[in-house]
Nucleic acid binder design. Structure first.
Lengths: 99, 99
DNA sequence: AGTCAAGATAGACACATGTCGAAACAGCAG
DNA sequence: CTGCTGTTTCGACATGTGTCTATCTTGACT
């Protein structure tokens, strides 16, 4: 946050923050990002008390925000993080040292 | 994002991200955080194409998220950032080096 | 082909959110 | 005290979001 954002950056940044603004999505993102490898949806579902379609919906939101990507291999679908997006949005939060 | 979040941290983090998930609020936060000093609401309003009550509403959301604080001095109200909250939420985004 | 399971999609519903205009409130100036 | 300006609060409205059930798609296995 070294300088005031222009509208375009604000819109894109807000979209990413919106993707992270739900507790379930934030936990999903945390699980996928901290795994250090791709994660199978079948291993994720058990952590949550919502239906499988709801998890699928949240994963889609994360994917459309550019935070994760996925691939189907056989019966299962695997998700992995896209760290560049995380680090980029993180720069929006950096506070100037003390100007 | 060094380890999977527990539900409580996810809820609190999601609340902060929700506060930042609107383009106007993200720009407001950027303006306040990058100013390096307190900012008068009267100087903010001109940057946006929405009504004053809407700006006031968004500032309230940022304040309730713990991202800014404010004080009235005479006629005008001044806002300043609370950087600790920003840095805390930023740690939720840190990706492990490559585990 | 037939069946089964994992996951995604579609449609529907209650609820939350962004926005506005109108009104209330707080200080300053006559 | 009366009015004027800056800011917040209040009600209302349209739109967006999270969740569900039901259905569809994809691939594996017999």
């Amino acid at each position: 946050m070294v300088a005031a954002l222009d509208s375009a950056a604000a819109g894109e940044g807000a979209a990413v923050f919106k993707a992270l603004s739900d507790p379930i999505r934030l936990r999903l993102m945390s699980i996928i990002a901290s795994a250090g490898k791709e994660v199978c949806v079948c291993d994720i579902t058990g952590y949550f008390d919502v239906s499988a379609p709801t998890i699928s919906h949240h994963l889609r939101v994360l994917r459309e925000a550019g935070l994760v990507d996925c691939e189907r291999r056989g019966t299962w679908v695997y998700y992995w993080p896209l760290p560049a997006r995380l680090t980029w949005v993180s720069t929006l939060l950096s506070v100037p040292a003390a100007v």
